[in-house]
Design a protein around this nucleic acid. Sequence first.
DNA 1: AGTGTGACACTGG
DNA 2: TCCAGTGCCACAC
Length: 110
Amino acid sequence: MKSNDNFFEKSYQVARQIPFGRVTSYGAIAKYLGVARSARMVGWAMNASHNNDTIPAHRVVNRKGLLTGKQHFDGTNLMQQLLESEGIKVIENQIQNFDTVFWDPTIELI
DNA sequence: AGTGTGACACTGG
DNA sequence: TCCAGTGCCACAC
């Protein structure tokens, strides 16, 4: 609604474009938006995405492949369940084969 | 208008 | 190679 909502909207757009069974990092999205230094802001935007159930925020993790944001989901292991449902192995909140399932918008999406 | 916070990323030891 | 500390930008109070 406000002028700065564009940033949030862009974050949502990128999150939606994440292919099934793939994940990306906040920094990758931030870099794609031109604010690589503001990767944290992407997480903040995702926090607001709770109103938009169309945003697969569970596909967005930190650069280490750690599900740092699972805490923000309803359940405790909901985020992990969703990722495993897409064929992504998650152990101890850590995505296995992260480099394999990693999806970089700056490369895949230009 | 300024300060504090944050679902991160990077550099140094 | 791994752990810790610092830096960054944008939003909320």
